[in-house]
Design a protein around this nucleic acid. Structure first.
Lengths: 144, 144
DNA sequence: CGTGAAAGTGAGAATCACTATCATCTGCCC
DNA sequence: GGGCAGATGATAGTGATTCTCACTTTCACG
């Protein structure tokens, strides 16, 4: 009986962040989403928690994790490799990859890719590719 | 490039694993290195610890972490993204990427790449690329 | 061969990131 | 408004990793 009451809350987007169906927009969630939407570069869950706490002292850590994980499921955010601390980056919808500055931590997106095609992987390895992740590390414009 | 003389600890390679300068080859370290050298696919530090313990019951967990981290610094091993548990894969020297099977966890290497060239990244973004990481996720030959 | 300094070790405590639990609260569709 | 599915916060718990430190071992050099 989830059907009758479940009208499609057409709130699948908040400031460019994709949200799952039936997501309630609570003030807590909005606080975390705002921080992410305004964010340049990478961030950790703890970063968000500490910043959000300055405005909402009672905000729980679990709420931050729940919110980040929600965005991870919709693809609006994804974990970053190669960093010492577990960090995330915002992802615009669509296919793209990240240029991660090792000096200042800035993250830029690029649509340049050229990863091997699923067809070729299939042919050479019998491997059915479903997705891939590419992070390019180096020094950004400002730092070099 | 050729090593002309015996330098202090002429031991920068053990079974294909690159070691830092001045690395002492202790039995504990050798036990962990052997496990990694023989390894197919990905592994976690805990995996190594449990296996190594069967032969050396007094081996400490910290030693496993120290050894894995040592290899990570030399590039002989690298952490894998996208997995629930923190896992590593062996890296052969040279350029290559990983095909990670989401079903059985097997990891295959491929030299197929096509990542954007440093020159193009420099031109378009002013970004000086130093390296990149590409993991392709999907289903391997055996599992599909 | 010794030997000493530096490097490595094990055990356990500490830390860190994250998850589970649960009583309570609240946004949202009717 | 009313009601309830979904959200929240506090806290305890978990699992991975790092730290600490007294002790041991390796190995270049004499």
């Amino acid at each position: 009986m989830a059907r009758s009451r479940r009208a499609p809350a057409d709130r699948d987007d908040y400031r460019g962040l994709r949200l799952p169906q039936r997501t309630r927009l609570t003030p807590q969630r909005r606080a975390v989403l705002d921080l992410i939407a305004d964010r340049e570069g990478s961030f950790t869950a703890i970063d968000l928690f500490q910043e959000a706490r300055r405005r909402r002292p009672k905000l729980g850590l679990a709420t931050v994790y729940r919110t980040v994980d929600m965005l991870r499921r919709t693809g609006s955010v994804r974990p970053l490799v190669g960093d010492a601390r577990p960090a995330y980056v915002r992802c615009e919808p669509g296919h793209h990859h990240h240029l991660v500055c090792l000096s200042c931590g800035a993250v830029e997106e690029t649509d340049l890719c050229g990863a091997p095609s699923p067809a070729e992987l299939r042919r050479r390895y019998g491997f059915r590719a479903e997705g891939h992740e590419l992070d390019i590390y180096g020094t950004c414009n400002r730092c070099s």
